[in-house]
Simulated scan of single mutants.
Amino acid sequence: MSLLTEDAKGVFVISVTPFHPDGTIDFDSLDRVTDFYIEKGATGLTILGMMGEAPKLTQAESRAVAQRVIARAGDLPVVVGVSAPGLAAISELSKSVMDLGAAGVMIAPPGSLKTDAQIAGYYSQACAAAGEGVPVVLQDFPLSTGVQIDPAVLNRIVQELPQVVMLKHEDWPGLPKITALRRAEAAGQRRISILCGNGGIFLPEEMGRGADGAMTGFAFPEMLRQVVDLSNAGDMDRAQDIFDAYLPLVRYEQQPGAGLAVRKYVLQKRGAIASAALRSPGAPAAPEAIAEVDRLIARLTRRLKELT
């Protein structure tokens, strides 16, 4: 499998980690959901992210999940989240998954970082821990990590650390950050790939600002692929129409603490996984939420018919 580069584009779907109701990993469903993402147009996969319940897995389980998905994905690039409080854990998991054929690793900053110097210094250490030459995706998700990374600090990291080949852009509001990076590149800074998260809730605007695609999860990943392709083709109106049809469900999935249960319910409903179970701590979607989601899906089905 080839390594991730600054030229990466398209849709890298953040994969869920399927569990049996008893909390053990459902590897058959992991195969099935990997196939599902590929069939729906994923150009890459990202596993063991925050919405993949990575903090609930042991190191051995993380390695087992990575081994299964990388083997199943074939030539499709797989990025593995290796974020951890300590650098030793990052180093251990990075080496394991890169040996298995991962295309790169994703690292989010720990919440202890408070200053610009600490952030830049951390990524220098984290890149070294990941291993020489290992492509790194910098996950910028301040709503979750609490770490605010100024565009000037991102520019410094890009200039000083060639291992950082991609920004996973999840600042909110954060559209000016994409603009700042692209302007710096126009002025001579090294260009990196920018793929966007947050469930795709700002994807049309992010594409308009110069993003290369999406790296996020959504129970209808085909929407992400359609919006990215239409945006790249210059058909922003059609891209917006498609996005708007799915927006109520995108919005519903974005509820903090409840969105993953909703996403897993819809994936189960679509036949991609056998169970919507979350590993503890984590609660399934309430019956009221399920009824609301079913109504949104029914409305989505009608809306898509109108668009065809």
Rank of each mutant, 00 (worst) to 15 (best):
A102E: 07
A103L: 03
V82K: 07
V82P: 03
G52L: 03
S112T: 15
A88N: 13
I107F: 07
P55R: 00
L45A: 04
S112N: 13
V80W: 02
V79Q: 02
S62R: 15
I38H: 00
D35H: 11
S96N: 10
G44N: 00
M106T: 09
G104C: 02
K40W: 05
A89C: 00
A73Y: 06
E39N: 13
A71G: 11
A60G: 06
A102L: 14
S83G: 10
S62L: 00
P77V: 03
G81I: 14
P85E: 06
S91D: 15
M98A: 04
L113W: 05
A103R: 02
V97A: 06
M51C: 01
G111D: 11
Q118N: 14
G41W: 05
T58F: 08
R72F: 00
A117I: 11
P110A: 08
V78I: 14
G52S: 07
V78M: 03
V82A: 03
V65M: 06
D35Q: 11
G101P: 10
L57Q: 09
S83H: 04
E61K: 05
R68Q: 00
A102C: 09
L87H: 11
A73P: 10
V69T: 05
A60Q: 03
D99R: 15
I107V: 15
M98K: 04
A103M: 11
P110E: 15
V78H: 10
M50Y: 04
M51A: 04
A84L: 01
G111N: 13
I47W: 09
L87P: 11
R63L: 00
V79T: 13
G52R: 01
R68I: 04
R63W: 08
I38V: 00
R72N: 02
A42F: 08
T43I: 11
M51Y: 00
A84D: 03
V97H: 07
A88F: 10
S62A: 05
P77C: 02
I38A: 01
I107D: 06
A88R: 15
I90F: 06
K114F: 04
A42S: 05
G52A: 06
A103E: 03
I70G: 04
K56F: 07
K56S: 05
S91A: 15
T34A: 05
D35Y: 08
S94H: 02
G111V: 12
K56V: 00
Q118Y: 06
D99A: 12
I119L: 09
Y37G: 06
D99V: 11
S96R: 06
M106E: 04
D116C: 14
I38N: 08
M51S: 02
A73K: 15
P55L: 09
P77K: 06
S83A: 10
I90R: 14
I119M: 14
E39Q: 08
D116P: 12
